[in-house]
């Protein structure tokens, strides 16, 4: 794999994207009984779900930031907010120094096209009624990036070639492809608008194991060639190990640990990170399959008191149940939120 962690000593990487106190709440539509109660005046608090709870971090130009957490912890929701697909309900995202919710005109267009998403489910992320050629040509036409037919054709073919697909595929429909090929089409669609930032939402989770490595290598090659920045989402730490420079661990809507990739694998600080690492199949711990972390994932409707991880944490104390830990910097570039690190 590429050694991506070494930076030239004098190059200070610029921050491209910054998340400040980012939150997203989903309100469930009140059922009839609740609406009636409201009419009578005895309104129960409307049930809501905080998918993302106060997330702060910055993504630097050219890096690959891995975002890891169990299913349902809010990774996709975070990704959607960063790409502007859904607005946050609290906090802000800044892209190249400007708040994305206040963007207009050319700035908004630059942001929209500059930050593209690769989706989780290759079977749902392509319009089934469009041919591959139309899927790829549409962004060019809509934004006037290429106008004459020959030019569009040339760029569509170039995009297909870049992701390792045959140019003759442009006349086919998405259902005629395998999952891996579809994911490549999705990548081509994102690349055709020449973005500088890609949010990859578990782009290989739905693929055959035999295909996964190929697609990862494609991401690495594209990064080197186009100087892209990635937010690479995964529920599996071992996937992120191959590609990320830094890793953020997410639990129930919060970032519980963030560190350079090497350090997080060598010396995990948060108990949740440790459990995640223990689950990785390896020769050493004689595990052959990926296993879920023990204990049930708590419902995001009703997060546990104090530290949200305490019902499953082997080190939990009375304090953990009562008091939520704050995020601390335990070493330069390393943050953790756990009471165990309060002493340092």
């Amino acid at each position: 794999m590429l050694d991506t962690t070494t930076q030239a000593p004098d190059a200070v990487p610029e921050t491209v994207m910054e998340l400040r106190g980012l939150e997203r709440e989903f309100a469930r539509k009140p059922v009839l009984a609740e609406r009636l109660m409201k009419l009578v005046g005895k309104a129960p608090d409307t049930p809501s779900l905080k998918a993302v709870r106060s997330v702060d971090f910055a993504i630097r130009e050219g890096e690959v930031l891995g975002l890891v957490g169990e299913s349902g912890c809010g990774k996709s929701t975070l990704g959607r907010m960063i790409t502007g697909i859904i607005p946050p309900t609290g906090g802000a995202v800044t892209y190249q120094g400007a708040d994305i919710s206040a963007m207009k005109g050319q700035a908004l267009k630059d942001f929209t096209l500059g930050v593209q998403m690769i989706f989780q489910d290759p079977y749902a992320s392509l319009n089934p009624r469009q041919r591959v050629g139309e899927i790829l040509a549409e962004p060019l036409r809509v934004h006037g990036l290429a106008t004459d037919k020959a030019d569009i054709r040339r760029r569509v073919d170039a995009a297909l070639t870049e992701v390792g697909l045959d140019t003759s595929y442009r006349d086919r429909y998405p259902h005629q492809f395998s999952g891996g090929q579809r994911q490549r089409i999705g990548i081509a669609r994102a690349l055709i608008v020449e973005p500088s930032f890609l949010v990859c939402d578990e782009p290989i989770a739905a693929l055959d194991v035999s295909i996964q490595a190929q697609v990862i290598n494609l991401f690495l090659a594209l990064r080197a060639k186009r100087n892209l920045t990635y937010l690479f989402i995964s529920h599996d730490l071992s996937v992120v190990r191959h590609i990320a420079d830094r890793v953020a661990i997410m639990y129930l809507g919060k970032i519980v640990e963030m560190a350079p990739a090497q350090e997080i694998f060598a010396n995990p600080a948060h108990p949740y990170t440790r459990t995640l690492l223990e689950q990785i199949p390896s020769v050493k711990n004689r595990k052959r399959h990926f296993e879920a972390v023990k204990g049930e994932i708590p419902s995001p409707h009703k997060p546990p008191s104090g530290c949200a991880f305490h019902p499953r944490c082997p080190m939990a104390t009375a304090r953990c149940r009562a008091e939520a830990p704050v995020t601390r910097e335990i070493a330069p570039g390393r943050t953790v939120s756990c009471h165990l690190h309060d002493a340092n």
């Binding site: 959607r80 989706f119 749902a124 549409e138 962004p139």
Partner: peptide, 26 residues
């Protein structure tokens, strides 16, 4: 709710286009 519609918005297509070109035919 399907991801290709999110992708369409992500690519900066306007609402009318997403409505009539993407959601309607499907």
């Amino acid at each position: 709710r399907r991801e290709y519609v999110e992708a369409a918005f992500n690519l900066g297509y306007g609402k009318p286009r997403v409505m009539f070109r993407h959601i309607m035919p499907n």
